[in-house]
Design a protein around this nucleic acid. Structure first.
Lengths: 192, 192
DNA sequence: TTGCTCATGTAAGAAGTTACATGATTCA
DNA sequence: TGAATCATGTAACTTCTTACATGAGCAA
């Protein structure tokens, strides 16, 4: 079982979906945090079906292919439940902006750098607004009750909001830092 | 140029390093956020040298290979500076724990689930303690001055601390949520 | 008549991981 | 004597991305 396989089981835990619906959901991060492309998803669905973790039924579709609907089998549900309680494998986060920040001293154009951080802050704030509206929607439906099916989505949004708030405000803080005294060579001798 | 190539240029921005030093630094995330393995690093260093972005000089080393020291060339410095001001490409974050949370309703053993969140919280808090001590160390050296070479490392730590604080406290919040009324079937009819 | 959405699939390539190889020196 | 650190490199594999293919129905 691959991580993508588990991601698909997760996506199906609330009920059956077609391959195409899964593709659309996983374009924007599922649980606001996991993405996959169609070229990954379709082969993986076949694999899950072979393993007996999902049941896939086809009906005639619009194009040259059948429209397939997938749902968890009892074995799939069990596999998912077993995986849920295992400690997650730590995946290395890779983030361009943090990398750039680490090397910020190598920037020759600090104004352009500052603008980049402000643009990123704005992007994160826009995403944040989206998350907040979905969060409010789920709250209205009682998604904050941990016994409800919707609680998972609510809880991931909760984290997403906390994280992006910090990220956005950090971007603005950095932009501020870069605005201060732009000139004067550093008082160290360490510049090679 | 690959993202890994830029990561190496970033790592070298403060001065020359040997391949092995780079390998060690990138085992733990550089700027507290980017990792790479030696099998990636060594070939990429050759590529960067071929492109003329780094200059690599060898001296006899302990084992069967030469000990190579790498440093940015003026062209490498320019390439880095140009890349820094470009908007970062958004990389999809992939996080097992968030995925698990999304499907938390499928958990059959909520106690085990709760323990998993507590264990994760602890792991993040340990990492946080490490970050905080490095943060304090950098502060003493005046790393909070945006004109200093150390400012990049200070700024990435600043973000790392904010992010992991949120992550850890969210884990504890979730554990709390899972502790409330463990039984009673949900009042929805939506369970397929 | 061009372009979009629905719907599934394949092929080629880039990026990352795991595992192995050499061989000197240092430490218990 | 056995393990760890220093030091660089290769091979095989998995995972993810980019790009392409089919073809129906619908809208401007």
């Amino acid at each position: 079982m691959t991580p993508l396989g588990y991601a698909l089981l997760c996506a199906l835990h609330r009920g059956p979906l077609t391959g195409y619906e899964l593709v659309r959901r996983m374009r924007r991060p599922i649980g606001y945090y996991w993405t996959a492309r169609q070229s990954q998803i379709y082969p993986e669905l076949s694999r899950l079906a072979e393993l007996g973790l999902i049941a896939s039924t086809g009906e005639p579709g619009p194009g040259p292919h059948q429209r397939m609907t997938h749902q968890l089998t009892p074995a799939g549900r069990q596999e998912l439940a077993d995986w849920l309680i295992q400690r997650p494998v730590p995946r290395p986060g890779r983030d361009d902006l943090i990398l750039k920040t680490y090397a910020v001293a190598a920037a020759t154009d600090r104004t352009a750098m500052r603008e980049m951080y402000l643009a990123e802050a704005q992007r994160h704030e826009e995403r944040l607004a989206e998350y907040r509206s979905q969060h409010a929607e789920l709250l209205e439906q009682g998604g904050d009750d941990p016994r409800r099916l919707e609680f998972g989505a609510y809880a991931t949004l909760e984290l997403g909001i906390r994280l992006w708030e910090q990220y956005a405000s950090w971007c603005r803080w950095l932009a501020d830092q870069l605005a201060t005294p732009p000139a004067e060579p550093p008082p160290t001798l360490a510049s090679i």
